[in-house]
């Protein structure tokens, strides 16, 4: 049996004056012990609701959930000592210092005064917060807050860790720092359920990915399995001049197995190919003989973005970029534009 198991979870909210929202619509989930499972999906897909149900914060309308065989809904008080939670909104007391926040959490886990202080100090060191430990959290940067929040989830070294969008809104450096911490924890045997809207994050951290949309898991597997599920490699190239777009489209259509997809700026083209290396050679020969200059050309395996697009008809990050104001760094087209 899996360490975390959720079967057919359903949860409907009815916001005032609006039609009911099916936050969870028959969600199933299995997380084996000592592994990282990522719940990947856009905002509103049901990621946070899933975490809330599994961390005893919300009761589902129906369905069952267990952690290490303990029923989450019937015995929340037995679940709480075994879990650590770090949410996308850092749940820390602004008026307390970093140290006081961690000390308080230790005391509320009933660690006793001395052990709580020792543990708080260890975590402060571990998370590089020594300089900030005696300042109220109010003055902390977003990354520091998030680190204190994650440290709070680790006070007990719980066997299960829930990380709800641990890096949303963080700058790239803090994000990588967070990834290192998570990787270390997993290396030591912690079971992690992680939610993310970043494909790259799921790719980097997760052993298994559950793609979630409209309150249901619509696909699951390893990153490689998911990518393989939507077919072979792609040939991708970008033009120096947009004037050659028509010619490029004609060539790619001839050698590829699908209609070429064109990037927003009109210079980047992607096409599927049965035998991508052979197709690439032929395509490049054709471009050379016609004297069309290329900015970039190559093969690539499908990304999770392609998976998402294929499964849901929309990209994972499109609506999130608008909703959170964060720049969408995952889509291939924008990455290309930054090069």
């Amino acid at each position: 049996m899996s360490y975390i198991e959720a079967v057919d979870l359903k949860k409907t909210y009815t916001p005032k004056g609006a039609s009911p929202v099916h936050a969870l619509d028959g969600l199933n989930l299995e997380v084996p012990q000592g592994t990282v499972t990522a719940l990947l999906g856009p905002n509103g897909a049901g990621k946070t609701t899933t975490v809330k149900v599994l961390t005893t914060l919300t009761r589902p309308d129906s369905g069952t959930a267990t952690i290490n065989g303990v029923d989450v809904i019937a015995s929340p008080e037995r679940i709480r000592p075994m879990i650590g939670v770090s949410g996308q909104y850092a749940a820390v007391d602004e008026n307390l210092t970093g140290f006081e926040n961690l000390d308080m959490v230790g005391r509320l886990y009933h660690l006793g005064a001395k052990q709580s202080r020792v543990r708080a100090r260890e975590l402060i060191d571990l998370f590089d917060l020594t300089e900030a430990q005696n300042r109220p959290v109010k003055g902390f940067s977003g990354g520091m807050r998030r680190r204190i929040d994650l440290a709070g989830a680790l006070v007990m070294r719980p066997p299960v860790l829930f990380l709800d969008e641990p890096t949303t809104g963080l700058d790239p450096r803090s994000r990588i720092g967070m990834w290192e911490i998570i990787t270390t924890l997993v290396g030591e045997g912690t079971t992690v359920l992680l939610t993310t809207q970043y494909l790259e994050e799921a790719d980097q951290l997760a052993d298994s990915i559950s793609v979630i949309d409209d309150g249901k898991v619509i696909a699951k597997g390893t990153s490689d399995e998911l990518k393989a599920s939507i077919g072979g490699q792609r040939v991708e190239l970008s033009l120096v001049s947009q004037d050659d777009a028509a010619a490029a489209r004609e060539i790619l259509t001839r050698f590829g197995s699908t209609e070429p997809a064109v990037s927003l700026d009109g210079r980047g083209f992607t096409v599927n190919a049965e035998d991508a290396p052979a197709a690439l050679q032929l395509i490049l020969t054709e471009f050379a003989s016609r004297g069309i200059p290329l900015y970039d050309a190559g093969m690539r395996r499908p990304t999770l973005d392609d998976v998402f697009l294929k499964l849901t008809g929309h990209t994972a990050s499109a609506d999130d970029a608008a909703a959170t104001g964060t720049e969408n760094t995952d889509a291939p087209s924008s990455r290309k534009a930054q090069k």
Partner: peptide, 17 residues
């Protein structure tokens, strides 16, 4: 609003505390 209630509610503490 700050979300700290969520933190408290996931701790094994008394709900009235």
């Amino acid at each position: 609003k700050d979300g700290i209630i969520d933190r408290f509610r996931t701790l094994p503490m008394s709900p009235s505390a």
